[in-house]
Amino acid sequence: MESIKNKLEEIKKELETESREYNIISLGSLHEMEFPENAWAIRNMIPLEGITIVSGAPSSFKTWITFLMAIAIAKGEKFLGLFESTQSKILIIDEENHLREVKRRMERMDKNGDLPIFFLSQEGFLVRDISAQKKVLKICQDKGIAMVFIDSLVRVNNADENVATEMSAFFRELKKFCKAGITVVLIHHERKEGLSKGAIGSRLRGSSDILAAVDSHISIRKSKDDKNILTVEQSKLRCDKEFDPFDISVRDTEDETFFEYLGERPKELSKQQSAKAIILSALEESSTDLAIKTIVEAVRGEEQVGDKTVRIALKELIKAGDVLEKSSGVKNEKICYLPTPSA
C-alpha cells in the first residue's frame, strides 16, 4: 500500500513538472543579479546548502573526523582550531554504527551533552524514499536543524552506485535537502589503493557521477609509516580553490581521543603518495612485469611529477615490500612486480 502511495506521489510530481513552464533569464538580467559571497559551514571545506563527500578507506577515521566537524559546527568554533565554522544545529543519520559506538566516540571527543546535535540511528533511512525524506525534512524544520551528516552513502542508497543514471537520480533526491536550506555531508568509501589511479577524485568508489554531483570532496588517508597520522586532501571545491593537503595527528589517552592539526603537507610528499598509488595500479593491471622506465612513463602520463619523484616513490615501495624487483637479464635492466598474495 505504501509503495502504491509513493508511486502516485511521484506521478503527481511528474505531472506538476510537465505543466510548469521554464523560467529563462537573459544575460542582461543575469548581470544585474546580486549574490552573496560564498557561505560556509566550515570555511574552504563545506559550503552551506551544498553537498560534501568525506571519503576514506576502512579505519581511516573518516567517521571520527565528521563527528569532530559536527562538534565544531554545533559550538560555532574553528574546526581543528583553524577553519572557521558557522554555528548550527545538526542531525547525524548513522546507518553504519550502533548507538553504543556513536556514544563512545562522541564522549571521547567531547563530553558536553548539551550540544545541539541529534541522532537518527539505524532506522533504515533511504534517500530515494519520498516518505523517509519528508520525515527527516520535518524533523529538521521542527528542530531548526540546518545541517545533516549521513553515514554512509552505501547504507542510504538502494541502487547500484556504479551506474551513473542511478547515482544521478540519488543526488537529485539528496539535493532536495539543499533546496530546503540544509547542508549535507555524506560519508563514502574509497576504492582499494591499488585500484585508484592516484588522482584524489578517482579514489571514490562507484560511478564518476558521484564526484560530479557534489560541491566538495574531502579525502582522508592514514599514513603507511605512522598509523596515528592522517592526511586530509580535497579533490573538488566547486565555489573556490581547493585547500592544500594537510596532516592531522591522532592521540589516545585512557578517556579521550585528540586530533591535532600538524600543518600543510609538503607538496613533494603529496606527489610521491600519488605516484605510489599509480605504480601499484599499473603493476596490478599489467599482465607482465614492468621495467622501471615503463613505470616512470606510466606515472608521468597520469600525474605531473618528475622522474626523480617517481623513482623515490618506487624505491620506498620496494623497501616496504609492496613491490619486488629483479634483473631482466638485459643490460642489467631492473623489472618490477607485485608480491604474490599469501593464502
Rank of each mutant, 00 (worst) to 15 (best):
I92S: 00
A74S: 15
R265Y: 09
E34F: 01
K197I: 10
L338I: 07
K7W: 02
V184T: 11
I248V: 15
V127T: 14
I42P: 06
E161P: 02
A298H: 11
G206P: 10
K12T: 15
I11F: 09
E49C: 10
T63V: 02
L262T: 14
L82E: 08
A57M: 12
W64N: 00
F67Q: 10
A212K: 13
P58L: 02
V102D: 03
S59A: 03
K197W: 09
I51S: 15
I182L: 01
Y22R: 09
L230Y: 11
E96G: 04
E233I: 03
E264Y: 15
V232A: 05
C239S: 13
M109P: 02
K236E: 00
L82N: 03
L174T: 13
D289E: 12
R108F: 01
E32M: 05
T86V: 05
K326H: 11
T231S: 05
I182Y: 11
V232K: 04
E190Y: 08
R203G: 15
F243N: 00
R265M: 12
L91V: 09
A180N: 14
D225Q: 00
S216R: 10
S327P: 11
E173N: 13
S219W: 08
L314P: 12
S270Y: 14
P266Y: 08
S219M: 11
A320P: 07
I318K: 12
D215R: 08
E254Y: 14
D151R: 13
I218Y: 14
I90G: 00
Q87D: 06
L15Y: 15
K138P: 04
M69I: 04
